[in-house]
């Protein structure tokens, strides 16, 4: 269980990214975080594993307060939080296997990771995870040889290799086409259900959020302005989150646009071949 208590972040520039955000994410819940660009979604999830230092409040992960931990304890606590990134953030020149094994870095001493001599159970686990995400035969390929969807699967496997108690997911589908996006979301949901993992998913795409999330939190200018099940996300609710807009027309327009973009991408890549 994750509890955020009046979490705040003010950047050095004086911009307030988060003000007094309090949330509770119980075990096994998948929470979607929506909101306009600059609302603080990214800051929020980065404050949880302290890739961004919060300026106030508490982050309690299964009763351990992550704010104010020393360097060493912080590293140990970070092992419990898996993170999945927007542009996959794989180390492109390492192999798929190395990327997955890098999820174990917090558990092994430097010499083992340097010599790539990971313990047998870590290696078995990595293979099992690659099998789970359907990439077993790609283990020894370099990460940059994979397609976008495949890379995000590696990202998921890396996060799971940590054996986490919480998943932070930052725009997992922002650089994927609509179909792959749905496959990736489905995979994430299944995996969270299998392990009873709570997850916070930053997501731009409102229809996608409504389709897959159990709970949706809307952030606007660093404040929670909506918190409820996806069915409650009405036109009015969207307007409080994003501001005035014709949402139904936009949804339709969005679909058309993504389809057109995907089409154009296919044609360009066909030309490039």
């Amino acid at each position: 269980m994750l509890i955020l208590q009046s979490l705040s972040k003010t950047y050095k520039t004086g911009d307030t990214a988060l003000s007094e955000v309090s949330l509770t994410v119980p075990k096994g819940q998948i929470m979607g975080l929506i909101g306009p660009s600059g609302a603080g979604k990214s800051t929020l999830i980065r404050c949880i594993n302290r890739l961004v230092e919060p300026t106030g409040g508490q982050v309690l992960l299964n009763d351990v307060d992550l704010v104010g931990l020393g360097k060493r304890e912080l590293r140990q606590q970070r092992r419990r939080i898996g993170m999945i990134f927007q542009e996959y953030a794989l180390v492109e020149r390492l192999t798929v296997m190395e990327n997955v094994l890098s999820g174990r870095l917090g558990y092994v001493p430097f010499w083992r990771s340097y010599l790539r001599r990971f313990p047998a159970e870590d290696i078995t686990r990595a293979y099992a995870l690659l099998d789970r995400v359907g990439l077993l035969q790609h283990a020894d390929k370099r990460a940059d040889a994979l397609s976008g969807g495949q890379r995000q699967r590696v990202g998921i496997a890396r996060a799971l290799a940590q054996d986490p108690e919480l998943l932070l997911v930052d725009e997992p589908t922002a650089s994927l086409d609509p179909k792959t996006s749905r496959q990736i979301m489905r995979l994430l949901i299944e995996i969270c259900a299998e392990r009873g993992l709570p997850a916070i998913v930053n997501i731009h795409d409102v229809p996608l959020a409504q389709q897959f999330m159990q709970r949706i939190v809307g952030l606007r200018a660093g404040r929670v302005v909506f918190d409820g099940s996806p069915d409650l996300l009405t036109q009015d609710a969207l307007t409080t989150i994003y501001g005035e807009e014709d949402w139904n027309a936009m949804r339709k327009g969005d679909e058309e646009q993504t389809a057109a973009e995907a089409d154009a991408r296919d044609r360009i890549s066909a030309l490039a071949r």
Binding site: N49, L51, R75, Q76, Q77, R78, R79, I81, G82, M83, F85, Q86, E87, A89, L90, V91, E92, S102, G103, R104, L105, G106, Y107, F110, S113, Y114, G155, R158, Q162
Partner: peptide, 15 residues
């Protein structure tokens, strides 16, 4: 982003 991803796994500075 790649460094951030590795850092978020709990890796040490050397790692």
């Amino acid at each position: 982003a790649q460094a951030e991803a590795i850092r978020s796994t709990g890796a040490s500075w050397w790692q």
